[in-house]
Design a protein around this nucleic acid. Sequence first.
DNA 1: TATACTTGCGTCAGCGCTGTCGTTATCGCT
DNA 2: AGCGATAACGACAGCGCTGACGCAAGTATA
Lengths: 353, 353
Amino acid sequence: MKQANSMHVTLQDVARQAGVSAKTVSRVVNNQGEISEDTRVRVQAVIEQLGYRPNYLARSLVSQRSHSLGVVTAGLEHHGPSHTLAGIEQESYKLGYSLLFSLLPEPDVPNIAPVLDNFVARRVDGIIWAVAEIQNNRAWIRPEVLVNLPPIVFLSMAPRAGLSIVAVDNRDGGMQAAQHLIDIGRKKVGMISGPLGWWEARERLAGGRQALEAAGVECSPSLVSEGDWSAASGARCMRQLLERRPDIDAIFAGNDQMALGALGVAHQLGRRIPEDIAVIGFDNIPESDSFWPPLSTIHHQLFEAGCISVNVLQKMIELRLHGRDHAPVLPTILTTSLIVRASTVSVSQLERN
Amino acid sequence: MKQANSMHVTLQDVARQAGVSAKTVSRVVNNQGEISEDTRVRVQAVIEQLGYRPNYLARSLVSQRSHSLGVVTAGLEHHGPSHTLAGIEQESYKLGYSLLFSLLPEPDVPNIAPVLDNFVARRVDGIIWAVAEIQNNRAWIRPEVLVNLPPIVFLSMAPRAGLSIVAVDNRDGGMQAAQHLIDIGRKKVGMISGPLGWWEARERLAGGRQALEAAGVECSPSLVSEGDWSAASGARCMRQLLERRPDIDAIFAGNDQMALGALGVAHQLGRRIPEDIAVIGFDNIPESDSFWPPLSTIHHQLFEAGCISVNVLQKMIELRLHGRDHAPVLPTILTTSLIVRASTVSVSQLERN
DNA sequence: TATACTTGCGTCAGCGCTGTCGTTATCGCT
DNA sequence: AGCGATAACGACAGCGCTGACGCAAGTATA
C-alpha cells in the first residue's frame, strides 16, 4: 500500500509500524544513544520486515558529509591509471567512502570546470586527481580555485608547494634502468622516451641521462627517440634509432609496451636480444615476464600509490573538519625497483657461456 | 561572514543578497518558469559573485532522482573491464549521469549485499553489473531481490529471461578463430582456454570446438589445456600441449595474453611461427599488433558494449518512472570480427614463398 | 522524603532544495 | 470603469533524516 508515492520505505514508515518515534528508529539504525534491548529488537525486526534502507542523501544533507570521494582519471586502458584506481577503490572502501568516478577522454582536456562543479554539487568530501601531468593541464590549479574546493590529492605530478602529492620516483627509476645497462657493460644506450609533454616521460628520460652522464657513457640526441607509449610507436622509434646509430647495444624504453615494439623490430632485423642489444622497459606490466625474451624492467607501486592517496586525503578531510586546515603537506614519493630478466645480461656473463 | 556554519553558499544566501525569494533563484538556476530579464540578470550576477553551486543532494532528495548510476566491476587490470568501463563512463556523461563506482576484489565475491545496499542507500537511478559471470557468482540474481533494486543491466553473461543483458558473442568469436585456422589448412589445433569457471571462456572454447567438429578436424581433450588468462599460464599450457601432442600445427588461445605466453614458448623451443605453428588469440589488445610475430586475433566491441548498456539502462529508468515497468527486455549481442596478422598464414601461401 | 542523576524515549527544527498554490501588478478589452 | 487574463513573483510545505533539547519514570544518595 505504500510504495506508490515514495518508492522507498522511510524512517517514518518503520516508526509507525513499530509504534515508536522516527528518532528512535534513527538511533537503532545508527547504533547511538541509549535504547532498551527490547525496543531495539522490535525496531530491528520491523526494519527487516519492511526492507528499510536508509537514504544517505538525506543523511548527508544534514550531516554535511557525503562519505564519497571524487576521482578523476584518464586513459584507463593503460596499466598505470587502472592499477592506481584499483588501489584507490580498495582503500576508500575500507575507510567507508564511496567513489564518484570521472574519466577524462584525454589527459589534457582544456576545461575541467564541469568535472569539478559536478563533484562540488554532489558534495564529495574530497577529490583525488589521478590524471597524468601533461603539457599545462594543471594550469587550473591556482589557490583561488582550490579554496572553493574540497581537499584534493594529486597523483603523479611534480611536487609543488602547498599541494598534497603522491608520486612515483620516475627519475630514480630512470636512473636505475640506465645504471643497470651500464653495469652490464653496454656503451651505446638508445632511449625510447614517452611523449615529452608528459612529466613522467621527461623524468624517466632525465633519470636515464643523469646515470649515463655520471658514468661517462655517451648520451647524445641521436640516441634518443620520442614515442607515444604505444607498442607501435616503440617499433617506429626502434627502427629510427637503429638506422641513425647501428652501433646501439642497449635500449631503455620509457614503458614496457614500447619495449615490446622494440623487441619486435629487433627480431625482424635479426638482432639478437640480449646478445646484440639489451632491452629494459618501465612499469613491470604482467605480460613483460612473457615477452620474448622476458623483459627486464622497472617496477613501481601504483596500487600502493592509490591507497596512500586515499589515506592522505582522509587526513586532510579530518583536518578541515577540525578547523586546522593549513597543516604542512609533504609530498609522498614512492621508490622504484629493478627487475632483471633475460632481456639484459652482462657481457661477461655472455662470454662465459 | 557566511562560510562559517555551512561552508557552502545556499539558495537562501543568493536570495537574500539579490533581494528575491529562494524560489526565484531556483527558477533562474533551473531555467524554468516566467522570470523577467531584469531579475534573471541580477540573480545570475549574485550567483557568480557569491560562487553559488547547487546542492544536488538536496535536489535529489525532493526530486527522487539522483542522476547517478552504480557500476560494479572487477579485474580492472584486464583489458575487457577497463574498456567497458570507459564506454560506460563516456555514455553516462553524455546522458547527464554521474557514476558511483564499486570494484570487487575478485569476480566471485560471495556476499555482494553491501555493494547493492550502498547503491540503494545512495539512491542510484540504475545499476550496471559489469562483473564477468564466473562459477555461480550470479546466484544472487533472483526476482525477489531484483524487485527491491533499481533497474539493472548485466554485462557479459548468458542470456536469461527477464534480465537486460548486453554481451559479446564469444561463441561466434571462437568459431571465427577456429574456422580461420581450418581455412589456412591447419589440421591439429591446440586450444588454450581461459579458466572454465568463466562463462566467456567456456563460450569461446565451445565455439572453437563447434567449428572444428563441423569441419571434421580432430578435437580431442588432449588438444585442450586450461589457463587462467595470464601470459604465464599461456606459456604453461603451451608447454603442456606440445609435450602431449608434438604434432600440433596451430593454437587458438582464449585471449591475447595467453597467446603471448604461447608465442614465447614456441620461440624457446625453436618452433617457427607461423610456419610450424599458427597462433590466434582473442580480444585484440593494442599490443597484439606488436607481438612477434604480430598476432591474429578476434576483435570485439567492449567499449561499445559499455555505451549500449548505459542506453539500455536509461530506457529502463524512463520506463519505470512512467509506470510501465514490465516491458520486454531483449538481450543485446555484439558481433566479433577476425583480425588476420602474421601469426597465421595459409600453408599454400607459405609454399609459394 | 527530598534531591540529584540516569535511562529511554519523544518533540521540534532545520539541512537545501523544489512543487503547488497563492498573490499582486499590469495589460487589453468591452 | 469594470472585467478577466496574464506575467512575475512569494509563501509554504515537505523530501528523509539527525542534533539539540525536553520530559517522564526509575534509581541512587543524603
